[in-house]
Amino acid sequence: MSIIVNNLSKYYGDAKAVDDITFEVHTGEILGFLGPNGAGKTTTMRIITCYLSPSAGSISVEGHDVHTDSLEVRKLVGYLPEQNPLYLDMNVLEYLQYTAQLQNVPKPLIPRRMKEMVDGCGLGEMKHKDIGQLSKGYRQRVGLAAAMIHDPKVLILDEPTSGLDPNQIVEIRSLIQALGKQKTVVLSTHILPEVQATCNRVIIINRGKIAADGPIEDLQRSLHGGEKILIEIEIPDDQTFEMVSIQVKSVPAIETVSLIDQRNGTMKLSVETSTATDIRKELFHLCVQKGWGLLELHRVQTSLEDIFRQLTSDSVQ
């Protein structure tokens, strides 16, 4: 077990930022931390990285407690903070060297590690520039390079792809995925597709509590009992939505039928079932039987957005 978080709470004065959360992360796992603003993601990450102390509860990283064995934890963890603070008056190489020194990288290894990071994060052309002159995307790469310079066992990345352009995002994601095979990666993000693209497990955190925890597919299955099917049909002009709806509902297990779009004799419907039964075949037979032209028929997966909104909507009230 790489990271063990036990009954962790953190108060800022009276405000509860993190409220009694417990989870574990295994080596080789890429954990996505999701949640609305102010949910406690950054606070949790700051406690794991020893920047803040927990008010209650305990955390151990690779068997080292963050409170009693803080220096060991900090040696093992690579951390990219949320706002990606950097020394703007240093150039990229100076900064990487400084970070490597402070992370106790053995002196003879430092030049090699620096070169690997510069190459791996695509900083070759910028390595002699002052960080203050770099664009946000390049600064983000510098932050990532610095977080990984000592080849840490555990990587904590607070919004690693913010400020990057789509190409860079893809590069960084694949970098994270490659790293995640041997390391433990915890990343937080607002961008839901990012979690789907990189993480093999998600923790949704809301108001300091864990709202959901598990692989994305499990979450999709558990939160959405029934199936959702999208169907587009060609029908005679005299048929109205009400008439079609009644006929569609004759198929067992269908709960709701709603109209998405209607034009030029075609109709797009969204059909939801109450149980997880596949009714696509029944719908096909229905179309054949009624003589409707079947243009499109597919199962809609509950997106992470839906799960996210379902679990965190109470905070928007």
Binding site: K75, L86, Q103
Partner: peptide, 14 residues
Amino acid sequence: KSGTLELLFTKPIK
């Protein structure tokens, strides 16, 4: 102010 203290505090240094 710039937040770089967070970098220092998360390094193995007292």
